[in-house]
Simulated scan of single mutants.
Amino acid sequence: MADLIAWVMVLAIAAYACAGGTDYGAGFWDLLAGGAERGKRPRWLIDHAMAPVWEVNNVWLIFILVIMWTGFPTMFQAVFSAMWLPLALAAVGLVLRGAGFALRKPTRRLSRQRIYGAAFAISSLLTPFFLGAVLGGIASGRVEVGTPASADAWANGTSVLVGLLAIAATAFLGAVFLCSDALRFGADDLVDHFRLRALIAFAAVVVLALIGLPVTHDDA
């Protein structure tokens, strides 16, 4: 039974990584879209593509937490005791991200649009980074029952690398999704725009993966 529950959780994590990762990636490209005029078209597509799904994606995260604390309560306690700070920062990012995305669209004043947009975009980097850092700490064996909360659990080389990989991977997923969405809605100018960014993000994933070989050597 434990193996079955673990596989269900793994599949849910994969679903959240793909669906939520696309969502975070869109926020990453929102941050790099440029000024009000140059970034108007990319941000229009990001709003259009993410509006129906950005909130639904987090249902996977809630499902993962429920499976984790009911199926593996000891592991849940160990992870959340040792990693409470990065997980809290990721949760703050989720809240700020949702608020920024929801409030930017109905706002008419440019100054407020920039504030809400910045909250949405910056949180789209911080949340996957901290979630990746937590994953890196767990994968490198730094979390056990009774492990006290410390920076070493999530601020080590492996955790930082996995956090950066999470940002790069979500940027890739977001760019691919937005490229497909632009093609579907006939925004031909944005197809090439996001295809180029998908290739750049993919290259970043490859580079970080290669860097990860020596970084994770001692934790393998």
Score class of each variant (00 low, 15 high):
79 V>A: 10
159 S>A: 04
134 V>L: 02
153 A>F: 03
112 R>T: 13
149 A>P: 08
42 P>K: 02
109 R>C: 13
205 V>G: 01
36 A>M: 12
109 R>E: 15
138 I>V: 15
121 A>L: 03
16 Y>Q: 05
189 D>T: 11
11 L>E: 06
68 M>L: 15
19 A>D: 02
131 L>T: 03
181 D>H: 08
156 N>F: 00
114 R>H: 14
110 L>F: 07
212 G>H: 02
95 V>T: 11
103 L>P: 00
207 V>L: 14
22 T>P: 04
26 A>K: 00
100 G>D: 07
116 Y>V: 12
172 F>G: 08
109 R>M: 13
145 V>L: 11
139 A>N: 04
191 V>Y: 11
10 V>Y: 09
181 D>F: 10
36 A>P: 08
196 L>D: 13
156 N>A: 05
65 L>M: 15
67 I>H: 12
204 A>V: 12
61 L>P: 04
142 R>K: 15
191 V>A: 04
41 R>A: 07
180 S>E: 07
164 L>I: 00
4 L>C: 07
202 F>Y: 09
180 S>G: 13
122 I>M: 09
24 Y>F: 15
176 V>W: 05
189 D>F: 06
149 A>S: 15
169 A>C: 13
10 V>T: 10
138 I>P: 00
25 G>K: 02
74 T>F: 11
159 S>P: 05
69 W>C: 09
161 L>S: 00
46 I>L: 08
95 V>I: 15
206 V>T: 13
206 V>K: 04
153 A>I: 03
9 M>E: 14
102 A>T: 07
98 G>P: 11
202 F>N: 03
38 R>T: 13
96 L>H: 09
220 A>I: 14
